[in-house]
Amino acid sequence: MTNSLTRRSMITASLGAACVATLPRGALALTEAGARTLVDNLVREINRVIASGGSLGAMIAGFEGIFRKYGDVDLIARSTLGADANRTSAAQMRAYTDAFRGYIARKYGKRFNEFIGGRIEVLGVRQVKSWYEVQSRVILRGEAPFDVRFLISDRSGRNLFFDMVMEGISLRLSERSEIGSMLDRRKGNIDALIADLRQSG
């Protein structure tokens, strides 16, 4: 038992992996109902944060907790770096992901202020390529509701959201543009970018 990594187990594991890779899309572990449940839970927690009407710090912490629990932060962080992710060391990537999570929590947690008295309502789910798009709307007092979509995938190994699209504006794609500008300002220096990120948002 000490040497459990035998050739046989390796072959079995790789065969298993090959089977999983060739499964048709319909056989994804993530189902429409699963994607919807995930967003229902996520929305319930967001609504709780909005309704609590806590201080700014509490709202930011609340948003960071939700982002960490339901979002694929590693993937979102990596994809905002774009091609620059390829020249980033593992240690830099960890530091970047960490700084990015805090930056997102501060930047978007602040916005939750504007949602006080409002709520989010889930409307429907549809499958797009390898993910599910869950449509919801934000209902605010005295204003027309606006559209928010959560994109859910299980390709990380868990059911997580990898993007949030508000009135067509994708958080991931917008942050990619913003991170790109921040990196340009630092002439491509990743460490300087990480230091900047810890201060912004």
């Binding site: 993937l75 979102i76 994809s79 409307l123 429907g124 549809r126 797009v128 390529k129 390898s130 993910w131 798009e133 449509q135 559209d147 979509r149 994109l151 995938s153 390709r155 990380s156 990898f162 993007d163 699209v165 067509g168 994708s170 991931r172 794609l173």
Partner: peptide, 25 residues
Amino acid sequence: TIGSSTAGQTVRPAVSANFEDPYDQ
């Protein structure tokens, strides 16, 4: 049928149809 029965009002077309899969990159 799911799309058309509720179309117009609540369920609108997917916004992410043109997105690339970030897990492929």
